[in-house]
Simulated assay, not measured.
Amino acid sequence: MTITQLNYVLAVAEHKNFTKAAQKVFVTQPTLSMQIQKLEEELEITIFDRSKKPIQLTEVGQMIVQQARNIVNESDRIQDIVDQQKGFIGGIFRLGVIPTVMPTLLPMFIGNFMKKYPKVKLKIEELHTEAIIEKLKEGHLDAAIAATPLEMEGIKENALYYEPFVAYVPHNHKLSSADKLEINDLEINDLLLLEDGHCFKDGILNLCKAARNYEGDQLQLESGSFETLIKLANEGLGMTLLPYLHTLDLKESEKQYLKMFKDPVPAREVSLIYNRSELKMQIIEALRSTIAGVIKGAITFQNVQIISPLNKKKEYQVN
């Protein structure tokens, strides 16, 4: 068997279609099919059940794909070892970023990084945390920027910064006269939230130590956009919470409605995460140092209470 054959198997397992898989690996469909058939004949087993639509892995095929992924990933890292030894910082680097971090953090560091490391070819995807973890484990991402702690086996977390939660309280809200808020001031059914899948929403639910209950509500609404939540708050439909970096880009007319929390300020931890077996550490360290260089001037809060995005509702304090 060859690494090429294993790559073909992984492509078909991902796309569940021989034609799409062939396009992914830049060969003709007959060539790909022939090589997979040769591998099946050599092993005297069937990897794919071709009678089903879409194509499905057989039971033994599932185990073979898992091992093939490990073999291909390890073979790819031979070049990584050479690059590290030479101190070379370059090549393709696949980075995932969660949606509530992408629009604020990315513009802050991407220009500096590309100028400093012109040989690195960044491929950036905006993904929810669940998809990021899956792609990291499957080797489709080299690293990601996400809210932590995640406590996932095999995933390393390197904290970049702690980002406070900031309340957006319009002038007609009952909390509008408060100077600073306390966590106990929050009522979960009064908060406008992001839709499911956003870890920032999970953090807010953990902060309030409650689950959202829409029973009896006249309006049931969750959005994927902070901008939408702000506009709805301005219409008197409640208040919302924002990540601190997002507040820096608000209009001056909107900033007057921002309210900080009393110390320790509730915050989320944003980290660079990657597979523990990742060998592109020279690029990961370059990313970490570049982000650290731009973020330290934007976020200077010290006494914060980290709110976990996990359902376990863990929290801890950083001074």
Rank of each mutant, 00 (worst) to 15 (best):
V25W: 13
V25G: 10
H15R: 14
Q37M: 10
K38F: 02
S33L: 10
Q23A: 10
K16Y: 03
F26H: 15
V25R: 12
T28Q: 11
E40I: 07
Q23G: 08
F26A: 12
K16E: 12
V12M: 07
H15N: 13
E41Q: 14
V25Y: 11
L32Y: 04
K38Y: 04
Q35T: 01
A21D: 05
I36V: 15
T19P: 00
E41A: 13
V25F: 12
H15T: 15
F18S: 06
K20M: 04
Q29Y: 10
Q37N: 15
T31W: 03
N17T: 09
K38C: 00
F18V: 10
K16A: 12
V27D: 05
L39R: 00
A13S: 14
A11M: 13
M34V: 05
K38V: 03
P30L: 07
L39W: 02
I36N: 04
F26G: 00
Q35K: 14
F18D: 04
Q35E: 06
A22M: 09
T19R: 04
V25D: 09
L39A: 11
K20C: 00
Q35G: 01
Q35Y: 02
K38T: 06
Q23W: 03
A11V: 11
Q35P: 00
M34Y: 09
E40M: 06
Q23D: 13
A13M: 09
E14R: 15
K20E: 14
I36K: 05
K24N: 15
Q29F: 07
Q23M: 07
L39Y: 13
A13I: 06
T28W: 02
K24P: 00
S33C: 13
V12H: 08
K24E: 14
E40Y: 08
F18H: 11
E40T: 11
E14K: 15
Q29R: 15
F26E: 13
V12I: 15
H15D: 03
A22Y: 05
L39V: 04
A22H: 05
T19Y: 09
A11T: 10
T19H: 01
A21M: 08
N17G: 03
